[in-house]
Amino acid sequence: MVDQAKLREVAREVISREDVRLLIGYRPGTYGFRARPAFVESAEQVEELVFTPACVSNLASYLVLEEKPPLPRGAEPDNRKVAVMVKGCDSRALVQQMVEKAYERDHLVVLGIPCSGVVDMARVEARFPGVLSAGSIIREGDDFVLSFDGKTEKVPAAELLADKCKRCRYPTPLVSDIMLDDEVERFAEDDFSDIAELEGKSVEEKWAYWAEKFSRCIRCYSCRNVCPMCYCEDCILDRLKPVWMRRSVDISENTAFHISRAYHLAGRCIQCGECARVCPVDIPLMELNRKFYKDVEELYDYEPGLSTEATPLLSTFSVEDREDFIL
């Protein structure tokens, strides 16, 4: 696990640099061992920084979502670098953002965190009800160690790990300027068996499954808002000219919304799992993204977010692309 003192030391050095204006990291949440993003603008603030298995959120989103208020006439924009802490999965968001020209590589100082997995808060809550409001968590070998109410509990990591970590192919960041720990070797594989299972069912069963999920959607758009790849200036969901789908919450509009969201991530989703994590009604959004991910890999041998040199999947083609369904 990352040495917290070293993390703060590195962060202090980075934020003290003249060419860095902001460092995005994690700090403990108000209660319990949830972590929340920390926006560090000066060396004094680094003391609050942490990295624990509770640091689930993908900080790459903040790079592209940061608001740029109108500048007074004649004012120079602050174009200094932004430093950001990324886990393996998060780092792929940086790569993909760069593929999509969101910023140049030298705009960033990347603090890489080789990661052996974060926890699924729902699993923690289910196992130790109430624990999320007070306590802390660390990783020790193959276990998570939880401290709360003066006691400590040791739980095998597999029991609390987030799903995305159980099939993580890239635990060590693919892009970084300073690696905060030793590289973590790939400890999991992803065979997409979860997707294959539903694929094997009849269309009626599939629709029954999704109709139930989609009918829960309250159209809060949290999934979109948290996504590191969803940062259009003007999302088609918000547009009035034209109206791609209505705002009403019903199965038809909800389905259209979920198709649009998933399609827009085809060949772009880097599997950080944030959408599914933040969904207040537990729609398995990653299953939608992973269906595209699986097909894209199978058909086009393409994984987004691995190389900044890659061409966006749907902006390219091969003459040999399969077309067995075309009349």
Partner: peptide
Amino acid sequence: TLMRRFLEYLG
């Protein structure tokens, strides 16, 4: 190709 497979996945 992708959209058709995806829609099939949804039923």
